[in-house]
Amino acid sequence: MASKKNHPSVQQFKEFVKEHPKIIQEVRKGNKEWQEVFEDWYLLGENDVIWNQYKEQPAEDNSQNTESKTDFMSSIVSAMKNMDMNTMNQHITNMSSTISTIQGLFDQFGVSKGSKQSNSGTGQSPFSFRKD
């Protein structure tokens, strides 16, 4: 007879979980167990304040953005853990030497930030400036 009384409550609990999909996520992540959730639901009822955090809200985009940012940051942190720092240092050194070489080429051919106009025309600036 006890199993017949439990069946309607189990059905109600299933409907409750469908209305609160974040509970499923918590259980799958391992933060909670179904038995614990069922006991809380049975003792506290459906209208308790603790269930508000598990409801699907219309402004779900903000929480998904926050969750995706958290996922993104955790993926970056895990990538940093897997990175070989010696290899990274070698790549940074190579990039630095490449940039230095390019700057040296610009200096050798007389190309600088402000000399775009001096290359066109006669090669002389229309203004006379003296170097000190």
Rank of each mutant, 00 (worst) to 15 (best):
G114M: 08
Q12P: 00
V111H: 06
S115P: 04
N62T: 12
E19R: 02
Q124S: 12
G45P: 00
Y54K: 01
F109E: 04
Q53H: 15
V49K: 14
Q124D: 09
I92R: 02
E39M: 13
Q90P: 01
D61I: 09
Q35I: 12
S3P: 00
L43I: 11
M83S: 13
T70C: 10
N31P: 01
R28E: 15
E39Y: 14
D48R: 05
D71A: 10
N47Q: 11
E56I: 04
I24Q: 00
E19Q: 05
K14V: 10
M73L: 14
A2R: 02
A79L: 05
I24G: 01
I50G: 01
K116R: 09
N6V: 03
R28Q: 11
N119F: 10
P21A: 09
Y54M: 04
K4E: 03
S118G: 01
N6Y: 15
F106P: 00
H20E: 04
Y54V: 01
V49N: 07
A59V: 03
K4V: 04
Y54S: 02
M80R: 06
Q57F: 10
S74I: 10
Q103T: 03
D84G: 03
H7W: 05
Y54H: 11
F72E: 14
G123S: 04
G114N: 15
S68F: 14
I102D: 00
Q117K: 10
Y42E: 06
T70D: 09
N119V: 13
Q64E: 13
I24N: 00
N47M: 13
M85F: 14
A79D: 09
P58S: 11
E19I: 00
Q25G: 08
I23Q: 00
N89F: 15
V37M: 15
P58G: 11
E67K: 00
P126F: 08
G30Q: 02
H91A: 07
D61Q: 07
V10P: 00
Y54I: 00
W41K: 00
K55W: 12
R130D: 10
D40G: 02
S125C: 11
E33M: 06
D40A: 12
Q35G: 11
Q103W: 06
I99F: 11
Y42K: 08
L44P: 00
E46K: 11
M80Q: 11
L43G: 01
Q12Y: 11
T93S: 15
G104E: 06
K69P: 02
G104C: 02
E60A: 13
K113I: 07
V17K: 03
K69I: 15
K18C: 03
F72Y: 15
Q25L: 12
M85R: 08
H20Y: 12
Q57E: 02
I92N: 02
E33S: 13
N82C: 15
S75N: 10
N62M: 12
